[in-house]
Design a protein around this nucleic acid. Structure first.
Lengths: 148, 148
DNA sequence: ACATCACGTAACTTCAAGTATTACGTATGA
DNA sequence: TCATACGTAATACTTGAAGTTACGTGATGT
């Protein structure tokens, strides 16, 4: 399997959208994310359904953030992109006849479930505003030739 | 991506090997795991390198567990199969120029790292003996027509 | 000796899911 | 009315585990 970058990309894009003046088109977003406008629309569709963004057609159309960054957590975005599978490792057979394998499954499921619970909790604790604040900090301390 | 079942399979197989009289051939193991002998050899090679099992060629050859189930944790097996990637979700770009994306990466990496640390700790806490004990419990309470 | 057994490994194919691309339809607004 | 921008179906690409085929090597029993 390939890595699922949807959560990462949407977080990135939402913060850019918050800083943008007007709507951001799929084409502009695709440039930011180094991808394709269709991929943007496809992924953003989930965020629109979740009530995080709005989409408008025609001239001056595009995508608009309709929540403040304080109101949106990483977990909200994770859910909005469809709660993709978290783990790349898992059970060989989810419903085995073999009792040994059933015991293995119970043990692995227990470990994975705890890690997943931890991750969900972590994601629920991070707002986009906090990430944006970290960006501001990085921005003001960036190395640049523009400084006097 | 497809699910990585190597850890699950090796846990299953090691417990069967502990209960077996002599060595278990790759063909017999493949039958247990509903897979192919080559897949078994390929995966077991890591366990042999890690000192968990021994392989012998020729008649009466096959795979033998050379540790007791008490000595082996789920984490040992995870490491022995090559510490496969844990998460199916991740960063779109590991080294982005964009400072916003850098902040997103930092935030996501932090959450993922904590979950991974939790999972590693969980895996290190579970011995194969504990899983085997759970199997025994399932075995003795199984529904069967053989009971009087 | 030598046939058989079992592992060792290279090479190739299959499979799944995210990602990328093309194409076309629909709604908006200058 | 025509350019703009989203909506979405269809198709191809990518990546890594899993599955297969094929052949080589070493060990054992007759």
């Amino acid at each position: 399997m390939q890595l699922d970058g949807r959560l990462s990309r949407m977080l990135h894009l939402l913060i850019h959208m918050d800083r943008a003046e007007g709507p951001v088109t799929s084409a502009a977003a695709a440039d930011m994310l180094h991808t394709n406008p269709v991929v943007v629309r496809r992924t953003m569709a989930g965020l629109r359904d979740a009530g995080l963004v709005r989409s408008d057609k025609g001239h001056a159309g595009g995508w608009t953030l309709i929540k403040s960054l304080e109101e949106v957590t990483m977990l909200d975005v994770y859910k909005a992109v469809g709660e993709p599978r978290i783990f790349a490792i898992g059970l060989a057979d989810a419903a085995p006849h073999c009792l040994v394998e059933q015991a293995v499954n119970a043990s692995m499921t227990n470990a994975l479930r705890r890690a997943e619970t931890m991750l969900i909790a972590e994601m629920g604790d991070v707002t986009l505003a906090e990430i944006a604040k970290d960006f501001e900090s990085r921005f003001s301390s960036r190395p640049t030739n523009l400084k006097i």
